[in-house]
Nucleic acid binder design. Structure first.
Lengths: 332, 332
DNA sequence: GAAAATCCAGAACACGTTTTCCTTGATGAA
DNA sequence: TTCATCAAGGAAAACGTGTTCTGGATTTTC
């Protein structure tokens, strides 16, 4: 045959070119065993000349590890999962680990399918994340698992979650430090745990400075606009509105402006999420709480790496958010 | 030792339990070779009893394939890459392929690192995507590659891209079918190829119905608002504005409303991207062009699967977008 | 100069599966 | 009866690496 099959070179090819055995070549390239420096160098040159890249499948097989972790997300289209994913990927790639993406689309059947696939790939660990902070059923696999954002219902599992309590409190503290004394709260559906937590924390930390009841609605600008009408009717003297999301806060700002109320001179507004497309496009730009989800993803990945290395940290970890101050409370 | 090391069962364990050899067990589970039905059944039961999951690393090694593809994205935080990712993942998981995620953060060094890692993992193929439609340097690997969204500069490479020409034209056609005769165009930076293409196509298909020059600016609501002021000064009689993005279109709508102009009665507005958080939250909701990026991702993955199977389809493929009509052109 | 210590490299094996080849026994036909 | 055919299943090789063991060669020491 004139056309030879082109094969990516293996360690045997490198060894042959360097005139040594395969095992010697392996030792040379991995800097182990006792070899003459001259031999090492010769093997190295041969490897470079052939463009040798070690086949990690071989390594995986013999080491018993796959250097891969799975990421199971119930909806990666959500804007919460994505920064978590990126943070995790960032932390993992530093450890030479690859991340395989599994989007279950909230379908238990797909989740089972992916779990089987990941187990069959002998993944070193699994990260489970979702779009809601409500606890979820743990998954049952013989592999280290860390939950991000959506904790496991089992308190012995490792879960990394956002501290919405602290986040909401920091917004209130900020407003009070600016002298605001009549604070209202507008947020999403009461059925959402995050709405409940943020509302409770807001009321708790505002104390007597809290006016009326938390207004539960939906996570939308429309609701934010509508809530302003309700609030101004019932609480005409309020001087600050904390919102459960940036979308709501943006709607609030829009409506206040339409009514001729100045933000923040008349009424200060805070959001939640630091979703840049909302927080920065709002007029005025929003003071808001950044959940630092990318950091959460990194943290999750590092906890998983620890668990893989044999030192698990059982139990939940809460990460505080960070308050980002902008014109909606500070003015220009 | 009282504590035995718990090992996930291998095919040898299954074989031992069923009283056959490993090779027979493999044949039984894979439905190949000639075996008595009774034997097959016995092996199957043994496998089930032990909870046997085949180690895909072994299969990968012996089959020469890894059943894994890499996805290289220059920024997966961008809202373009994500639907592409999801579509690709969807199409691949149907073929039992896993997708490993590599976010280069637009850093050539990281890209090199990831490429080496993917090659070393003997990935079956690679998808390359980016956030801009500008062509990019091809990557040099001995593996099938398909480019999505950002095509390769090499026309022989397989690239799947959006047909912005057709998309912009469909918006104009829609406006003209509604009787609009004085159409302006507001878009992003002239340095962006997608802005250029959309502008050229808009002018071309509008013909004499196009007024003035395309207004280049930035991809922001603020620019949309500002552009309205410019347009109304120079083209007081225009009856439609097509925008290069939903963000711009939302800004346009906001400013028109502030000036007391009715959308769409006085001036119809179209966006681009069908970015729901903009298109639906806009007042009124936007008629816009959906690039159908998830479908693009699926298409990309299927082309890659073909290439892996040995039937590559060289050259670029353009996918038409889909016009989504809403109140910003139709009214209520 | 011989024994011991040291150094170096190759052989063999492990990892888990698939696949190819081979053996055994049975059946049927000549 | 003998040979060819075929079903059934086992043995071994292959995939590509890392690790351990072993033995030969060289140097050191007395």
């Amino acid at each position: 045959m004139a056309s030879r099959i082109i094969r990516t070179p293996g360690i045997k090819d490198v060894a042959a070119l360097a005139g040594v055995s395969a095992s010697t070549a392996s030792k040379a390239l991995n800097d182990v065993g006792q070899l003459r420096a001259e031999t090492r160098e010769r093997v190295r040159r041969a490897a470079e000349q052939l463009g040798f890249t070690p086949d990690s499948r071989g390594r995986a097989l013999s080491s018993g590890r796959s250097f891969t972790v799975g990421l199971i997300t119930t909806d990666s289209s959500g804007r919460f999962s994505i920064p978590i994913m990126l943070g995790a990927e960032d932390a993992l790639s530093a450890g030479e680990m690859a991340l395989v993406l599994c989007d279950t689309r909230d379908d238990p059947l797909r989740e089972q399918h992916y779990l089987k696939s990941l187990v069959s790939r002998r993944v070193d660990g699994i990260i489970v994340t979702g779009r809601r902070v409500e606890p979820r059923e743990p998954i049952d696999v013989p592999i280290p698992v860390v939950y991000a954002f959506s904790p496991s219902t089992d308190p012995e599992d490792t879960s990394v979650l956002v501290d919405d309590h602290a986040g909401a409190a920091s917004a209130v503290r900020h407003l009070r430090s600016l002298g605001r004394e009549r604070i209202a709260h507008v947020t999403g559906p009461e059925s959402h745990l995050s709405a409940q937590i943020r509302a409770a924390s807001t009321m708790g930390s505002a104390g007597t400075a809290f006016v009326g009841d938390p207004l539960y609605g939906e996570w939308s600008e429309r609701w934010g606009r509508h809530a302003v009408d309700v609030l101004l009717r019932t609480q005409p003297k309020l001087d600050a509105i904390t919102c459960g999301s940036d979308q709501i806060a943006r709607g609030v700002c829009d409506r206040l402006r339409e009514l001729g109320r100045s933000v923040p001179d008349d009424i200060a507004v805070t959001g939640y999420d630091n979703w840049s497309v909302m927080a920065l496009a709002s007029r005025p730009p929003l003071t808001t709480v950044d959940m630092e989800l990318e950091e959460l993803g990194r943290r999750t990945a590092n906890l998983l790496l620890d668990a893989i290395a044999g030192s698990p940290h059982p139990g939940p970890v809460e990460l505080p958010g960070r308050l980002i101050t902008r014109e909606s409370t500070l003015g220009t």
